[in-house]
Every structure is written in structure tokens, then in C-alpha cells.
Design a protein around this nucleic acid. Structure first.
Lengths: 352, 352
DNA sequence: TTGTACGCGTTATCAG
DNA sequence: CTGATAACGCGTACAA
């Protein structure tokens, strides 16, 4: 039978002070003499004291827990992992823990964790176009951040990759390299309902018009891709190929089965993997870094800002995609800077 | 300014009963007349009442939260995702939430979440051979389950794939198909320190001896794989190739670049992906399902068992790997049953 | 600069 | 079958 955890009472006794003094040392909400502070801290150390989170949450209405609502598909999409890991680590840095809430629970899940007081803030991922959870989280009234920007969402903080710009970047690259055609994998046309895809296509279409590029939206299912790419390339017009999200790695590895050897094809990838490290066949593929770690960290920091500065108004932060080009040796080098951007996030626009 | 969440007092007032009656209706720890129960439940529904988790945890010492300690590499290894998603969903089913604890925090992290009382139970993943966290979680004294079986770990509950059997299965398959050589990718020889790899190799070596199969442990880095496979196959002796964990998908897609077309090579994969759906090139690869979802669910259920039945002694549960063979049409069919196993978990051995 | 006392919302032990 | 009441451990207004 193990003894139960020490309380602030125990610490107070050991340090020869009152319980409230211990509390004040911890919260720092009142000046404490250096001498007693030291005695208290020693006692804390000696006992291995940690304040009881239940009691603290009950009293202060702050649980130190951030809820992270992960998509339904969580578990099938490897990409989400990067976000979750980075979010957990960054939250830790600020003294918060991450609680998983499955999207399966929907709006009810939000109400649940809010009403029970388990979470004092929320991060939502991969919202649909008209998502019930947005209303729920606003009504809940606690600080929240969305990862993944809805098309015109104004009433809250958002952090996301700048997908419109991504679209333009892809078109520009293709055109700059002399392509007359752009082939998009992963069925973006069928996924317009997704916010990221929809914004991406906006950028694509807008820029393609200006650069006179033909865009082929839906190149078929994954297994059809290599054949389709080859067939198009046979036309003799140089063609760029690009795929969005998770499928990318597999897609290109697949395409590498032969289609990509064609000099008429310019493959471009959106991935945070170092492709050259996977296979020399992929080494020549220029990629765009989706900056998922940065996005995650920014989301946490934005949430912390909302939690700490009170009366803080929400912000929309779009992170710049970055080219990572392989050089001749097959080693990667950092993407070139372009005029008017420093490779960091750009728009940080107030909204509320 | 939104009003704060309703309390059991509010419910009691509305239902015209005392506060404690509300509590008893919720916990069911005392018989309540059908009439008052109904009135209370209506009041709860009308107010949207949820019991405050802080107060509940403070009083009952049960937080309803299970801590999940994820590996350092969390975010780089897509495979872990499957576990986390399935764990979160299954925990939900039993009324628990999952709190992420990063392995970065090490043993201190365990002490922290235990002492603060945030978690009432723990799941640990990917423990090293001599992991400080095992001692920490045992000392902490609360229920825990390990996903990933240490070589000889006795004092706690464990759920894992039967990696020794996996090794034997791979060897048997290779031998049955007339291979004289087995080529292992993913540098298992360099990763013997990992529990799963070490047990896998145990099974491999043991069985390879009996079947007279030559085993090549470290076939180089990922990009070298195709060349190495081809070179070996040129010897004219039929060769099976197999890779452990995460890398598998990419690995085989890479190898598909040509090496796998060689009839002298028998590729075998450990993956939960339907390879045929990714590319027809991968369609003929027989795979072993690592059963990560089942493992996750079993881990949660084992933890719930430890939490609910008190005095329950820990169990080691090894889940059977399963062959999933592609048939002629490229469609997958369920793996064959073998004598003495029903495709479910086999050994559920008491340990304590 | 420190100590005292109260209450956060629950669960559980008393009576009735 | 139900109602009062005492903790649980901490944060903070008030008193010293």
C-alpha cells in the first residue's frame, strides 16, 4: 500500500509556515521573503510535492489542460501525427497538457469537456466547410484556435498553411520550368468541400489563368496515377505533377516506378519528408515544406496568448509554404528567399 | 459574459431534491425511486449539467483520465498514429479521456501526472530495454499497461504483437515458398536494443536454424535496398525480403522501382495498409497485419479491467500476427487459419 | 511580510 | 428511500 501524495499542508508543516504561504510561493501572487521562499521550495523538493490538479482546477477554474480535437480519420492519416506531436511538446513548454477529444464526439464532445471543466482551451483540426463544432466552441466561450482555415472564418484564431499561396507557388514553378500542363493527384476536385483543398484550388485556378497553364484536376485513383502521367507526357508537352497531403509520399514513390523517369514530367511534392533519404529515385523532386511543426507551435502559442493576455482578440496566422530544392549532389538546401517574404509566417491579421 | 456551468445544486433545486440525491442518481451507488430519478434526469437534461471534473477528482481521487506516454519520435513515425487513434476511441467508449504525456519528460513526467492526480492510469509505448519509466510507473502504484513487451518483463500488464512468432512466420513463409535466403531491411541488426526488434530476431534466428535459411540482417540504408536486393537475387538463389515497421510502405514502394519485379525475389511486408490499393505494383506482396487497432483496444480494455476489478492481477497478452494474402484478382482475402489459433490473441498469461 | 478562514462542487457517511 | 453534513486540497480576501 503506497501512501497518498503529499499536500500543501505537508509542505507547510515541513517548512514551518502556513498552508497559504505555500500556495503563494507557488502562484507568486503575493511577495514572499527570500528566506521563507527558500524553506518552502526545499520542502517541496524534499517531499516531491505537486499541487493536486483537481483541487487547483476546482478552486481556480483553470485545469492546465488544452483539449485537442482530432479528426475522425485520425489513425489513417499519417500526416496528423506531426501536428499532434509538435502540439504536445509545445504545450508542455508552457505548462499545459494535451487531452485528446475525438471528432467522433462532435459538438457534444466540446460541450462535455467544457462543461466538466476538463479543458480550459481548445484546438480544433480539420474543420469542414460548415462545421457544427465551430458554433459549439464559440458558444462554449473559452479560448480556442483552429488549425485549418475555413474559407471566410472571422470570429476566432486560426493558424494554417497559406494554401492559396501554395497553389500560386505550384503554378508559378510549373510555368517557370516551361510546363504547359499541371496534373493534380489525390482527387482535389472531389475534395473541394475541404477547406484546405478549396483554398488551394482557388490559388491554382487564379494563377493558372494568368500564366496560361492547363490544369488537370482529377487524375484518377492512386494506382492509376503512373499510367495517367505517362499518357499525358506522351503528348510531348512538358507536364508538372503535384499531389496534396498524406498521399504524396506514397504517390511519388509509386510514380517513381517509371513514370517519373520521363524527362517530360516535372514532379513536385508537398511533404516534410526528405525525399532523397527515402530513395535516390525521389531525389530530384523539388518539394514544398508544409511546415506542420511551425503551424502546431504557433497554434499553441496563440492559444497561450489568448489564455494569458485577457481581452486579447483573435488572430489569423497564415504560414508561408517553403520550397526545398534538391541540388546536384542530391543533398537538400534551404529554399530561396523571394522578394517580400522572409520565409516566416506572414499575415497575422486581427479579426475579432 | 457567459454564465458559468450549472452545478449539482442547480439541478437539485430544479428537481426539488437535495444535492446529494443528484449525486446518487449520477453514481448509482444507492437505490433511487423511479419518480425522483426521472425528475433529476430531466433537470440534468434541461440544464445541460455535467459534473465538474475537478471537484469529482478531488473528492473521489478518480479523474477519468488515462495518461498515454508517447515515444520521443512521436511525430516522425506514422505508425504510432494508429495506436493513438484507436486508444482514444476505445477509451472514450469506457468513459475515459486520453492525456498525452511526451516521453521527453521521462520518469519525471510520470511522477508529475501521478502526483498531481491528472491521470488515474497509464499506458506506456515503446519502452527501451532498460527503461527508467518502468520503475517509475511501478513505484507510482497506479494501474498501467505497456504496449510493447520487454524481453522478460513480469510485473505488469503488457499487450503486444507476438514478435517472436512473427519472426517464425516470416521464416516459414520464405522456406515454404522455396527461398534459400532471407533479407531483412530497416537495419534490425542495429536495432537490437529495441524490444520488438530483439524478440523478432529471436524468432527469426531460432526458426531459420531449423529451416536451413540464410539470414542477411542489415541490407544497408533505405536507398540502398533496391540495389542490394537485385544483387543478391542475381546469385540465382531465390530470396525473400522483409522489413519491420514504419519504413515498410515506403521501402516496398521504393523497391518496387524494379527490384521487386525480379521473380527470384519474394517480398513480404508488415503493414496494415492495403498495398494493392496504393499501387498495382505492390498488389502481389503478401503482408502481415500488425493488428495495431486490436492491440490498442486490448490495452485499453486491460487497463479498464485493472481499474474496475480491484485486486486484479496483471496479464501479458500477445496478439497473433495475421497473413493477408493477395489473391489472383489483386483483391485481398482474410488470412488462413492455422491449427491451434483462431486469429485472435493467444497467450493471456497472468503474471503478478 | 505572514497567518486565518472560507468556499470551489463533489462524494460518502451519517441520520431519519 | 432520502436529506443534512463533513471532508477532499487549494486559492485568495481579510486580518494581523
Amino acid at each position: 500500500m503506497r501512501r497518498s501524495a503529499p499536500t500543501s499542508q505537508d509542505v507547510a508543516r515541513l517548512a514551518g509556515v502556513s498552508q497559504s504561504t505555500v500556495s503563494y510561493v507557488l502562484t507568486g501572487s503575493r511577495p514572499i521573503s527570500a528566506a521563507t521562499r527558500r524553506r518552502v521550495e526545499e520542502a517541496i523538493e524534499k517531499l516531491g510535492y505537486h499541487p493536486n490538479s483537481g483541487a487547483r482546477a476546482l478552486r481556480s477554474r483553470r485545469s492546465g489542460v488544452i483539449g485537442l480535437m482530432v479528426p475522425e480519420a485520425f489513425g489513417n492519416d499519417a500526416v496528423l501525427m506531426r501536428f499532434v506531436g509538435a502540439i504536445a511538446r509545445e504545450a508542455q513548454r508552457f505548462g499545459y497538457d494535451i487531452l485528446l477529444v475525438t471528432a467522433q464526439e462532435g459538438a457534444r464532445g466540446i460541450h462535455r469537456v467544457v462543461r466538466t471543466g476538463v479543458c480550459e482551451a481548445l484546438i480544433l483540426m480539420e474543420l469542414g466547410r460548415h462545421d457544427e463544432r465551430v458554433a459549439a466552441v464559440i458558444e462554449a466561450g473559452l479560448p480556442f484556435v483552429l488549425i485549418g482555415k475555413p474559407v471566410g472564418f472571422p470570429n476566432g484564431s486560426v493558424v494554417d498553411l497559406d494554401f492559396e499561396r501554395l497553389g500560386r507557388m505550384v503554378v508559378d514553378r510549373a510555368a517557370d520550368e516551361g510546363c504547359e500542363r499541371l496534373l493534380l493527384f489525390g482527387e482535389p476536385g472531389h475534395r473541394r468541400h475541404r477547406n484546405d483543398v478549396s483554398r488551394f484550388l482557388l490559388g491554382i485556378e487564379e494563377q493558372a489563368q494568368g500564366r496560361g497553364l492547363e490544369v488537370v484536376l482529377d487524375a484518377g485513383d492512386l494506382p492509376d496515377v503512373p499510367a495517367r502521367a505517362r499518357e499525358l507526357a506522351r503528348g510531348g508537352r512538358r507536364t508538372a505533377v503535384f499531389g496534396l497531403n498524406g498521399v504524396t509520399e506514397v504517390l511519388f514513390a509509386t510514380a517513381a516506378s517509371g513514370a517519373l523517369a520521363d524527362p517530360e514530367l516535372l514532379p513536385l511534392a508537398l511533404t516534410d519528408e526528405d525525399l532523397a533519404a527515402i530513395s535516390p529515385l525521389l531525389a530530384r523532386i523539388p518539394r514544398i515544406d508544409p511546415r506542420r511543426v511551425e503551424i502546431s507551435e504557433l497554434a499553441v502559442r496563440e492559444l497561450v496568448r489568448l489564455l494569458r493576455e485577457d481581452g486579447a482578440s483573435p488572430r489569423v496566422t497564415l504560414v508561408e509554404p517553403e520550397w526545398v530544392d534538391p541540388d546536384r549532389a542530391g543533398q537538400e538546401r534551404p529554399g530561396q528567399e523571394r522578394p517580400g517574404q522572409d520565409g516566416g509566417e506572414h499575415g497575422s491579421t486581427p479579426t475579432g
